[in-house]
């Protein structure tokens, strides 16, 4: 009779097996499921007498086109590895620095605003998933700040547009890596087993903020990510701090502007990183149980004042006039 441990082992999912030749890494970070697969959201939706989140049920044809794009990309996350790769001049197959330079240049050419690389760690993989890769490439495309502050409908369309774009980038980048003879798997909204926050931290993009999203110097938290995991040896970027976690200890702007009062002032520590755990039971009535998307905690973050000074100032003046905690529309 199988033991509980045996059951756990046999229920594990293995991703990116195509061309496997490395060690298996077992994921350790639980993923909060999306949509009605999320037990909390499902119970709240059912309590409203509904069968689907009002936000997901009300998506526009344009938003559905973006969703279909990443679902289509989801069919091409993995593929055959080229057995006879030819490398560009000056790039050796075993030179991590040259390969990292090539991958970053390619990702940028494909449309990425930021590209970072780090060694894959168990905490970067979903609990229950085994991934036979060693490195992860993170790519980011920013959302247009002047668009997302216009209101909930604009936020949703812009967010989904960028999600579709980053899914294109990861799909093509993974195919490029496989063309160079290394296994590679794309991770995006159409299918992922990579945890964004620890990857971002180690790839040197920035730091986790009080609102629960990673903050970069270039785009604050107004961006969407995708990833490629691979066995290709790549030079790593390093974590970097520009004072976000310390700043968030004393800043309360996202807390005060959150319509659901869902952002706590107290934090916990995960692997030494401060995490302010958003109370999803308070967040979902605004972010999932209305027809419109919510993005307010990210929009009011003072780190937007660096890249978007004038727009941020005008938006915050408007928020002050409306009153803290007032939704945009």
């Amino acid at each position: 009779m199988p033991t509980r441990r045996d059951e756990a082992r046999t229920s594990r999912r293995r991703a990116g097996d195509n061309g496997f030749r490395g060690t298996i890494m077992q994921g350790t970070t639980p993923r909060r499921l999306q949509g009605m697969a999320d037990p909390l959201l499902a119970s709240m939706v059912r309590a409203m007498g509904l069968g689907e989140s009002p936000q997901f049920a009300a998506r526009s044809p344009q938003v559905m086109a973006y969703v279909n794009r990443w679902l289509e990309n989801g069919k091409h996350r993995d593929g055959a590895v080229n057995p006879s790769p030819v490398f560009p001049d000056g790039v050796a197959a075993d030179d991590p620095v040259a390969l990292a330079r090539l991958i970053k240049a390619t990702a940028t050419e494909l449309g990425a605003d930021l590209v970072g690389i780090c060694r894959l760690r168990p905490a970067m993989i979903d609990l229950g998933v085994d991934l036979p890769h060693d490195f992860v490439v993170a790519t980011v495309v920013h959302e247009a700040y002047d668009v997302v502050i216009e209101g909930y409908a604009a936020v949703e369309e812009e967010a989904m547009r960028v999600y579709a774009e980053v899914s294109d980038i990861a799909t093509r980048l993974a195919a490029f890596v496989r063309h160079l003879g290394y296994p590679a798997l794309a991770h995006h909204n159409g299918g992922s087993c990579v945890q964004a926050i620890p990857v971002f931290h180690h790839a040197g993009f920035g730091e986790l903020g009080k609102h629960g999203s990673l903050i970069t110097e270039q785009y604050a938290a107004g961006f969407r990510p995708s990833f490629v995991t691979t066995t290709m040896p790549l030079a790593e970027d390093q974590p970097r701090s520009f004072g976000v976690q310390e700043f968030c200890l004393h800043c309360t702007i996202c807390m005060k502007n959150c319509p659901g009062d869902a952002i706590p002032n107290e934090y916990v520590l995960t692997d030494g990183v401060k995490r302010w755990l958003t109370d999803l039971e308070k967040c979902y009535p605004y972010s999932r149980l209305r027809k419109e998307y919510c993005h307010l905690c990210v929009d009011v973050c003072p780190f937007n004042a660096r890249p978007y000074a004038e727009t941020y100032k005008a938006f915050m003046k408007q928020q002050r006039q409306l009153g803290y905690g007032t939704p945009k529309s």
């Binding site: 970070t29 909390l40 916990v268 520590l269 995960t270 692997d271 030494g272 995490r275 755990l277 999803l280």
Partner: peptide
């Protein structure tokens, strides 16, 4: 000690 997460 490392916090794994919040569950409902």
């Amino acid at each position: 000690r490392s916090t794994v997460g919040l569950f409902y």
